[in-house]
Design a protein around this nucleic acid. Structure first.
Lengths: 213, 213
DNA sequence: CTGGCAATCGCCCGATCGGGCGATAGTCGT
DNA sequence: ACGACTATCGCCCGATCGGGCGATTGCCAG
């Protein structure tokens, strides 16, 4: 059994080598920080975590194959004491929300300064959570908004494809009236007037993703 | 007059310090590469370019205040011989297209490997253009697609706000019939059936941006 | 077991949408 | 001067949309 090193050991997970390098450089400016591993995807992240048991893990939200939130879930399930800071470019409310629920200790936007980054790592390492004001504000905006049900999200997902209500009804195997009822609920929950605005708001909140498929 | 240094001098422009650091580290692994300056926005980029006259400039597409393409335009206008590689996370067809038209010598996605990055810089420095296959494919997909006119883009931009045709007509000071004509043209050009699908396709091509305003 | 929520279906109705068809006037490049 | 493109407007019409109203079933928590 070796004695615990005095510094903070870090695992970086991001599919962009570019970002990993940037993170490594910015973080290793701190004399007591040590990047002990880098992973390019979720599977590799789990493997490296098992071997290295880092003090803090920096985890990108958007990754191919297994996304950051899924990786986080599996990580927390196996090592509930893992301290993970999520990193992302987007401030989509829903993603922040799911990350926090999945057990993230922090949530940073990639435009952070070195100081914020270092502060966040120290804070998370010492057991605190770290949600910057900017992110917290996004989260608060969503706090009181009613969540869409599974079925409602299914209906919502049909809209960007240009499906009409009868189309959606056929696609989901329900009646036209039911489809319209779901849509009415969706509009009401998102506080929008029609499908176009619904798409907009849903994308902005991270409920809907246009680039997929 | 000093003699030209043997290496390649580089200017990095990106609003994320993280990415700038990563780029700097990856690039300076090459012994003949020298990062002579870093800028966090368009204005700063123009200023530094004037002072440093770098061999190659790496320019982020998405930036606050003045975006990368606007910066590129101004850069090329003042220094037509400037060799610029655009960098971005997104592979939106329209943005690639506009970047090339504005005079970019290269267009890289941020998920590039170090090797690709270095190769691109060398290629651009030696006078060649550099459009990776992955990017070229996106571009080709858009090649035959008709472009929307200015006015059509204005109409398109109203859709995500949930405006009805009469609303759009009032907002733009034109008749309802004209609005409908524009929309018909838009649908036809984008090859979609309604406003919902139009939003989807337009966002995917980079013609429309939901996060703005 | 009662109350809330989700999912399902129904009817009615006015407003809106999308498309087919045609038309004029201006600009721009050749 | 001619075609190509754009912006503008018009009419007609069936399909679709969004909303107001109510209803049943099932499930889960209090």
């Amino acid at each position: 059994m070796q004695t615990e090193p005095p510094g903070i050991s870090l695992l970086l997970v991001d599919d962009h080598a570019l970002v990993r390098m940037g993170l490594a450089v910015l973080l290793e400016m701190e004399p007591d920080f040590k990047v002990v591993g880098e992973a390019g995807d979720g599977a590799q992240a789990l493997e490296l975590f098992a071997r290295l048991n880092p003090d803090v893990t920096l985890l990108d939200v958007r990754m191919p194959h297994m996304d950051g939130i899924e990786t986080l879930k599996q990580l927390i399930q196996k090592w509930p004491e893992a301290r993970v800071v999520m990193l992302t470019t987007s401030d989509l409310e829903d993603e922040i929300d799911r990350a926090i629920r999945a057990g993230a200790c922090g949530y940073l936007l990639k435009k952070v300064t070195r100081e914020e980054l270092v502060k966040a790592v120290r804070q998370v390492h010492s057991g605190e959570a770290c949600i910057p004001d900017e992110v917290a504000k996004q989260l608060a905006a969503n706090r009181n908004a009613p969540r869409l049900s599974e079925r409602e999200r299914e209906v919502l997902a049909m809209l960007p494809r240009g499906l009409t209500n009868p189309d959606i009804a056929k696609a989901l195997g329900i009646s036209l009236n039911t489809t319209k009822t779901h849509l009415r609920t969706i509009f009401s929950k998102l506080d929008v007037v029609d499908r176009s605005e619904a798409i907009n708001v849903a994308v902005q909140r991270g409920i809907l993703h246009l680039n997929e498929q």
